[in-house]
Nucleic acid binder design. Sequence first.
DNA 1: TTGCTCCTCACGTCACGTGAGGTGGC
DNA 2: TTGCTCCTCACGTCACGTGAGGTGGC
Lengths: 149, 149
Amino acid sequence: MTAVSPERTFRIGELARLAGTTARTVRYYEEIGLLAEAGEREAGAHRTYSEADLERLRQVLRLKELLGLSLEELKRVVEAEEARAALRREWHETEDPATRRRIVDEALGHVGGQLELVRRRRAELADLEEELVARRARLRDARRDLEGA
Amino acid sequence: MTAVSPERTFRIGELARLAGTTARTVRYYEEIGLLAEAGEREAGAHRTYSEADLERLRQVLRLKELLGLSLEELKRVVEAEEARAALRREWHETEDPATRRRIVDEALGHVGGQLELVRRRRAELADLEEELVARRARLRDARRDLEGA
DNA sequence: TTGCTCCTCACGTCACGTGAGGTGGC
DNA sequence: TTGCTCCTCACGTCACGTGAGGTGGC
């Protein structure tokens, strides 16, 4: 039996390639505090990343490209995400239903806000698509009329 | 009877506001040749824009925001659009069906390319929306379990 | 040992934002 | 005439790109 390699690590170039970006971008995100610094590192040593780091980077890039968020806005999203992760850990330490409800409600608000953004974008894209389809239909009609010639 | 004001014009500030951007952006687009210079203008005089200019600016901003195109890419789109407008004028001067077919086919290729971009984006947004909806469902379940407490 | 990838400056670029100082039109 | 909006530099900023010169690991 082979191990499932639960501790796959990446260097910055591979991480960037797998996430569809560049090493420079990853370093920049670290520089401005959007991504955490890659573990313990003596000055000048190579950065190493985990699969969790890869997923986090992918998610950040996805929100940036699809929703057009600035890095400042993404920083707030990531911070909120981390705060919620901390709350999830706290979750198991409390029995108080009021506290638990507060945690869930906060998460619901956060997810709801993102959903609204995504849906607005999708609606705008749907409008654009509709216009393009109409244009294409008119062009196809013209094209069909020319077939007979 | 009042006239339908077929020649409504705008100054740069109003144009920008109606298009959802800034005067600086409009000047920059003119500077890099993305938007045509605003008519005849002695140096230092105010720019004036037509409703057609407003529509063009809106369309450019829409493609930029929804598809994430760079200004260089948008320039190519606008140029292709202008070439097609020129061809439409040429259209009425030719009787040759082969020429007309070439004009229509070029337009079809252009619209088809844009449609593909729009659809890919929409699909990506649909995936993101699905994930968010699933997260919200799990949170709502947790929330419901807490109601009983 | 030889490549390849990584490292840190640091300057360049794209797409504007933001004054500074001055002029034009209702 | 007084505001308001416009004008042209020109420097600042955000999000990286792109070398320059040097070091690390399979």
